[in-house]
Every structure is written in structure tokens, then in C-alpha cells.
Write a protein that binds this DNA or RNA. Structure first.
Length: 209
DNA sequence: GCGACAG
DNA sequence: ATCTTGTCGC
């Protein structure tokens, strides 16, 4: 039920697609691969850098385990909460033709949406999982939500529409997938890709001498 | 003009 | 994103 991405070094990263099954988020499929990166990281253009490898992983899932293709992807990055309204989650949704939700761990500043004192004040008002507030542009358009996902975290996650889903539904899904701050499918993709990178580096060390 | 800026 | 030590609490 997800997708994520981890960086190895400058030219190679680790793409991870994890499928979790309810009710306990048991991992029933994982596709973790080292991928070469040719496009640099430029804020605002993350989709062009990371979407291709992740879309590849999704199509591998479609080919090999069609019965495990989820109804929705949770993407580590923004969707509509983006300077041009089209972040990584939007790229993946369109290319894979599947509903996607953007889940960012940090706020990406843009027109009228900044981590100022007002924003910090609103965060401090969030008290229980599910509490949230809208992220509105200076023109009054809601691009996403700051959502508290776990009782023990001060920091919210930033949820936005990726593709073929409403913001309310997106927030509902993120909320119900969260044991900790980061929704479990994204967290598993994160944990497992780090682990993969660690083993990969060990393997490289052995081959040196 | 300069810095900040999802991962 | 990554590097890094300890610390607190269940």
C-alpha cells in the first residue's frame, strides 16, 4: 500500500515499494532496488528525479503479482502541496494511473504557506491523532493538511492529494495507516531501504581487498 | 539581489 | 537526504 525512496550517495539511491496488508500492516510484498540517479535534486523538481524508478517498481508489481496491486499508493513527498500543484505523488499517480497520497515529513514553503509563528502555534494546538489544520495559499486555496498521526509526536505530517483522491480521504487513509508518526507503509519502505543500503555497503567492502 | 526549499 | 551520542521512557 505504499512507495518510498532513500538516497545512497549522490548518483545511486534505493527505490522501495512496499505492500502492507490490513489490519496489522503485515508486509506482503517488497521491491527494493538500487537505482542510478541522473537527475539532480532540485527543490520543486523531486518528481523528475524520483518518479521514474518508483513507477518502474510499480509496473514490476503489476507484472509479477497483479493480485497484490493496492488501491492506493502513499508517497514519500508532496502531491498538490507544491509550487506548481504537482509534486512527486502527482507524477506517480498520473504515470501509474492509480490514486496516490502525498505524505511529507517537512513543510515545503511556498506562496503563503510557511513555518512561521502562526503555523507553529497551530501545531501546538493539535492534541490527538486525527487533529489537523488546512494549509492555505495566500489566494485562499487549500493545498494540503498538517495532520497529527500519533499521540506521542509533536510534529505533524503534511498530507496532500496526489491523484484520483480527495484531501479528506487522503487524510483518513494516512491516519488509519499510522502506528507511529509516519504511516506504516512509508515507514517500512524507509526502514527496509536503509537496511538494504547498509547491507549493500558491507558487500562492497568485502569485494575491495 | 539573496537565501530558503519535499527528498 | 546524511552524519552523529546520548538520553528518556515504556
Amino acid at each position: 500500500m505504499d512507495l518510498s525512496f532513500i538516497k545512497g550517495d549522490d548518483n545511486v539511491a534505493c527505490a522501495a515499494l512496499i505492500v502492507c496488508e490490513l489490519p496489522d500492516f503485515e508486509v506482503v510484498y517488497e521491491d527494493i532496488t538500487m537505482v542510478p540517479l541522473t537527475v539532480p535534486y532540485i527543490p520543486g523538481f523531486l518528481g523528475f528525479r524520483e518518479a521514474p524508478s518508483l513507477v518502474d517498481a510499480f509496473f514490476r508489481l503489476c507484472d509479477t503479482q497483479p493480485s497484490l496491486v493496492p488501491e492506493c499508493l502513499l508517497v514519500d513527498g508532496n502531491g498538490a502541496l507544491h509550487p506548481r500543484g504537482f509534486g512527486l505523488a502527482s507524477h506517480i499517480g498520473v504515470l501509474c494511473d492509480i490514486p496516490t497520497v502525498g505524505v511529507a515529513k517537512n513543510l515545503y514553503h511556498m506562496d503563503g504557506i510557511v513555518r512561521d509563528d502562526d503555523h507553529k502555534q497551530k501545531i501546538s494546538q493539535l492534541c490527538k491523532p486525527g487533529d489537523h489544520f488546512a494549509l492555505d495559499t495566500s489566494a485562499g486555496e487549500t493545498l494540503g493538511l498538517a495532520l497529527k498521526t500519533s499521540a506521542s509526536s509533536t510534529k505533524p505530517v503534511y498530507v496532500s492529494v496526489g491523484h484520483k483522491i480527495s484531501l479528506v480521504t487522503a487524510a483518513w487513509i494516512v491516519c488509519h495507516c499510522s502506528k507511529f508518526r509516519i504511516p506504516e507503509p512509508v515507514r517500512q519502505a524507509d526502514v527496509r531501504s536503509r537496511e538494504f543500503i547498509r547491507k549493500h555497503k558491507e558487500h562492497q567492502e568485502l569485494n575491495k581487498t
